[in-house]
Simulated assay, not measured.
Amino acid sequence: MDQNKVKTLVNEALAENEALFLIDLNFGTEGSIKVIVDGDSGVPLSECIRISRHVEHNLDRENEDFSLEVTTPNITDPITDPRQYNKNIDRTLKVKTAEENFEGKLLEVTDQAITLFWKTREPKPIGKGKITVEKQQTIPLSDIREAKVKIIF
């Protein structure tokens, strides 16, 4: 299997829709190819079909047997591409850094960082009891080891 040819075909198909971007391209055993794509506002099934057809119609099945899967990231998969943060604004994220773990609503995304917001209960400065405190944290993208969207039912 000519992996460079497959990469070129995937990139050609993605170039037709600038809202789409490649998350992962895996070449498995026995000619299996798995393409994971995401989009700035999701990926319709029709786009997965279009990408699959573009790749499949430009490869010669008579020379090589292969299986092709074009899919989107699983909701439980971590965020791997900075563009994925934009489509998750206003969703709750769990973010791990080397020093701390954060869980909060994604407020803002820049080229260098994300900003999370959350509320927590803390002891009163004076007296007994607790008060609700609003917190906000800006986390550099380079510090993030793992970020996942929290699934809320």
Results as ranks from 00 to 15, higher is better:
8 T>P: 01
8 T>D: 13
8 T>E: 15
10 V>C: 09
13 A>R: 08
13 A>M: 09
17 N>S: 14
17 N>E: 15
18 E>T: 15
18 E>S: 15
20 L>S: 08
23 I>N: 12
24 D>N: 14
26 N>V: 14
30 E>A: 11
31 G>K: 02
31 G>P: 00
31 G>W: 03
33 I>S: 02
34 K>S: 07
38 D>P: 08
38 D>Y: 03
39 G>T: 10
40 D>C: 04
41 S>A: 13
41 S>M: 08
42 G>S: 05
42 G>C: 06
44 P>K: 15
44 P>N: 14
45 L>D: 07
45 L>A: 13
46 S>N: 11
47 E>G: 03
47 E>F: 08
48 C>H: 10
48 C>E: 10
49 I>K: 10
51 I>T: 05
51 I>G: 05
54 H>Y: 12
54 H>C: 09
55 V>E: 08
55 V>Q: 07
56 E>W: 04
58 N>R: 14
59 L>Q: 06
59 L>F: 04
62 E>K: 15
62 E>H: 11
64 E>S: 12
67 S>Q: 14
67 S>C: 05
68 L>V: 07
69 E>M: 11
70 V>N: 10
75 I>E: 07
76 T>D: 14
76 T>S: 14
78 P>T: 06
79 I>G: 06
79 I>W: 05
83 R>S: 09
86 N>A: 09
86 N>W: 10
88 N>F: 09
89 I>T: 03
89 I>S: 01
93 L>E: 01
93 L>C: 03
94 K>L: 06
95 V>T: 00
95 V>D: 00
96 K>A: 12
97 T>L: 00
97 T>Q: 00
98 A>Q: 12
99 E>L: 12
100 E>T: 04
100 E>F: 11
101 N>M: 13
102 F>D: 00
104 G>W: 11
104 G>N: 10
105 K>A: 02
106 L>P: 09
108 E>Q: 14
110 T>A: 09
110 T>D: 07
114 I>R: 01
114 I>F: 02
114 I>S: 03
115 T>I: 06
116 L>T: 04
116 L>N: 02
116 L>R: 04
119 K>Y: 05
120 T>C: 02
121 R>A: 13
123 P>I: 04
124 K>F: 08
125 P>F: 03
126 I>V: 13
126 I>G: 05
126 I>S: 12
126 I>F: 08
